[in-house]
Design a protein around this nucleic acid. Sequence first.
DNA 1: CGTAATTGGTTTCATTTGTAACCATCGAAA
DNA 2: TTTCGATGGTTACAAATGAAACCAATTACG
Lengths: 145, 145
Amino acid sequence: MDVLELESFLPYRLYRLADAVSREFSRIYKDRHGLTRPEWRTLAGLGQHGSMTATALGEQSAMHKTKVSRAVAELERRRWLTRKPDENDRRIEHLMLTGAGLAAYREMVPLAKAFEQELLAKLSAGERTAITNGLGALKEALGKD
Amino acid sequence: MDVLELESFLPYRLYRLADAVSREFSRIYKDRHGLTRPEWRTLAGLGQHGSMTATALGEQSAMHKTKVSRAVAELERRRWLTRKPDENDRRIEHLMLTGAGLAAYREMVPLAKAFEQELLAKLSAGERTAITNGLGALKEALGKD
DNA sequence: CGTAATTGGTTTCATTTGTAACCATCGAAA
DNA sequence: TTTCGATGGTTACAAATGAAACCAATTACG
């Protein structure tokens, strides 16, 4: 009889780990500011790049366009970002953080980095390169088909 | 100014990858049988262990008890599993697959394994041990706190 | 040109999810 | 034994999500 060992099955291991890490990390943006993950990613994308379109945001952070649309709407409601219509193409809007949005971003960045450092600090140097490289290789593998 | 590089941020990399792999893998149970992920995991848990309680299922496959409850209800509706009340403790029910449930499981196991093999085949031997070990180490790191 | 196909983004609707409240049963302690 | 806290599991409600339909503006092309 053929049995699948769930615990060692790669898709399951990956998902479980990502879920645990993500849940833990979410405390930084959810508990402190009541943000959802799409909202956090939107903030992070704009904080990193300054100004982006909704489409670019979706591509950078792997979000469906409806998620982006809703996240942007909520951040706008909070006055954390503003939209500026494109000069040449009136379908496009350029998004950027307001002062308040930038302030929130600047407050969270060090917390995010600290979170990552704390996690990595529990690993040996070899283990750190192992995940980094392993994840990189797997990402490449998924791409080429 | 302090910026967070989202692309290389561990929680993000992990989640993105897990999401992509999981989405790809879901074709095997979603497209073929219309199962949700909790339903697939329930099937996989019972197929692997023969008989389990709902609580045990939740622990093994990292699912909230409401997810388990609903997945079990749906699989029961399909007549893919049955419940047997515990002799001594009437709160507990032992779950096990029916013939139909087992048949579906046996059909999917080779597909799941093939999926994993195909993915791993795109990596070098070194990269394969890198993810395996990296994920293992990270899981340990999350546990100890 | 004028029409069709594409693109950027929003909205609607059905499904999935999480939280919390809930019901029943059990075990321990008074 | 009664009572209280814990445990196994379900349900109700609100929020998050995905798919598909949609609107408007733009581009491609006959």
